[in-house]
Design a protein around this nucleic acid. Structure first.
Lengths: 344, 344
DNA sequence: CGCCATAGGGTATACGTATACGCATAATAT
DNA sequence: ATATTATGCGTATACGTATACCCTATGGCG
């Protein structure tokens, strides 16, 4: 079995070749100022030649810092495993890139909501901090957050910034986004606007979007009709069902603001099936700007969240928190993407 | 700063409380047979009470096993950062779950193709093995693979199983899938079938799909027209351009097999713009079954890859490889999803 | 009744790095 | 010129676990 052409080089090997002690190698490579420029250059050269890389485990063990962040994605226990919220992908990409930029590794794990909270805590063992993306039942989620705070685990989360704010939160300006959507619908002359999305405190983000819509309507002298709000979770089926229920109720409406694109897409199907013309009879706005929003017919007007900044802010906030730097919750502006579904 | 209600417990703490030595704790928790059932039970109880978890770094350092897999996603340097291949998401979900099931952590990182190969090797420092998902220029990718083999790094990759096969490969049966698609188009009476997708050896998977199509046609006594094959990478724009070029060539055709759904969607747009009716004038089949395939009009017939099994097989193969167990390349069957775009 | 195997667990140490300290030498200050 | 401080580096050790090795007590066997 005689292979092992070059066992993994250690800092001792470098030290030997450079004629210095191992700690000096460590200092040189970590950028300590108490190493002369010449020595450092020499050490760096040798390290490069040997293709040396610092052993992550040893380093972490000694320094008690892993230089790794964990991304926990909480999801509802759904039978349909494959259908993950599409907008999560761009968030993931953004977070990954930002981690790489900051020299951090990213550990990722999908968690079922019902899992024991200490799973998350355990992860804190392998990472310096945690980024939480949570969907589904907020109450369940919330109790986990409280545990994390108790354990003094460092974390940031993506979500509604205007809620009770356990821990450090980064999120879109959902109220503002709701107002954007509402104003746009009002501008094109719509007056009876329905909202599809859970408006209970189980889903603070949806709640905020609805609140924004209401505020826009009130600013225009209209009073939102509570009967035109229908609960829906973020899925096509749910949107379809909610829209059908709305139609069945007989209440007239000339516009829909859906709390997510998936809901909107389901609703569009229901409306079309009912023989309504979009956007002539009913204008519709979604939320997220998933790729599919540009493929529906008519194409879907929607509110885009700034995922790129979101990832950057999440990582940045967490790293600041790790360094005990002051850090505040962040609210990201959104952008209205006008397409055919609101083109009068 | 007097907090620190409970410093992280170590195996020594457990040992003390259990009245045994630290190594016994280690043995008990790792399931060594040389510790009595009573002692083990006692140790496990105490560990649970103290909320003890094994320190990953110390454990890895000592045992030289990280119990972590790295997922490297190679992508072309594209300016459009947000548009990651959508099918990657379900793969990711599948891999994550499988890792969790097997007790492995998953480290994830997006790599630009042009990055130095040893970035990947470096990752092998932090993980026991690597899962590679690669897209874009295969030649570039290939040289990296060779380096990995040289370094004796353990890895598996997703891709074309029928190519030169550097390292261990898991992939869909692309040739078979091409035949499925071809046969379906022939069944509905189409005879002149175009193929949109790079058929060079820069993209072995696309090449295989085209080969499958050709085989199906030849089996029906038809000879594929090379002029009806147009290069395209997996994006809507590329599909759109390829379809336009095809139309501009003046060659008649009554069906298109696109190497990916994104290509198909772009092509559909081009065809519709040219006043063609789908599927009456031109039937079209895509590949991947991304969520958007069900939203186009007409809805898109496509070939679905079994992502769930894919993730499972990738992880399983890699773990077997780590244990030096025999392991073979795997080929996954695909499934044709019939929708409106081929409904005659 | 001596011999050896086995169970059960202790002792010592290695994994590779980072850091507290100490100690020279050199550079300033007084 | 002496006292002081900074520079540059070596010495010693800790981080928490896993494992090679050794030891004791027991039981089975001839």
């Amino acid at each position: 079995m005689g292979r092992q052409p070059s066992a993994k080089p250690t800092s001792f090997d470098i030290a030997y070749l450079a004629g210095v002690s191992q700690p000096t190698v460590s200092r040189a490579l970590r950028g300590s100022r108490s190493v002369s420029a010449a020595t450092r250059a020499n050490i760096e050269r040798i390290a490069r030649e040997l293709n040396y890389t610092v052993d992550k485990n040893a380093s972490s063990l000694r320094s008690q810092r892993t230089h790794t962040l964990a991304l926990l994605f909480f999801e509802d226990p759904t039978p349909d495993q494959s259908m993950i919220n599409p907008f999560f992908l761009s968030m993931l990409g953004s977070i990954t890139r930002q981690c790489a930029l900051r020299g951090y590794d990213l550990l990722i794990s999908f968690q079922q909501m019902h899992n024991d909270w200490h799973v998350a805590y355990q992860d804190s063992h392998r990472s310096d901090g945690i980024i939480l993306l949570g969907y589904g039942d907020y109450q369940l989620y919330r109790s986990k957050l409280e545990h994390l705070v108790e354990m003094d685990t460092k974390f940031v989360r993506w979500g509604s910034v205007s809620d009770d704010n356990i821990g450090l939160t980064v999120g879109s300006d959902n109220v503002g986004a709701g107002m954007q959507a509402g104003r746009h619908l009002l501008e094109i002359g719509r007056r009876t606007i329905a909202f599809l999305g859970d408006a209970s405190d189980h889903a603070p983000e949806f709640q905020d979007r609805y609140a924004g819509l209401c505020r826009a309507m009130e600013a225009a002298g209209l009073s939102p009709d509570p009967a035109l709000q229908r609960d829906a979770v973020s899925s096509e089926e749910s949107g379809h069902a909610a829209a059908r229920a709305l139609l069945a109720s007989g209440r007239p409406f000339d516009a829909i603001f859906a709390a997510s694109d998936l809901i909107a897409i389901g609703a569009m199907r229901a409306l079309t099936e009912a023989g309504l013309r979009l956007p002539h009879d009913v204008a519709i706005i979604g939320f997220d700007d998933i790729p599919a929003a540009n493929l529906t017919s008519p194409t879907l007007t929607t509110v885009m969240q700034d995922m790129k900044s979101a990832g950057e802010l999440l990582v940045d906030a967490l790293l600041r928190r790790l360094d005990d730097l002051p850090v505040e919750r962040a609210v990201l502006p959104t952008r209205l993407i006008k397409r055919q579904s609101t083109a009068v």
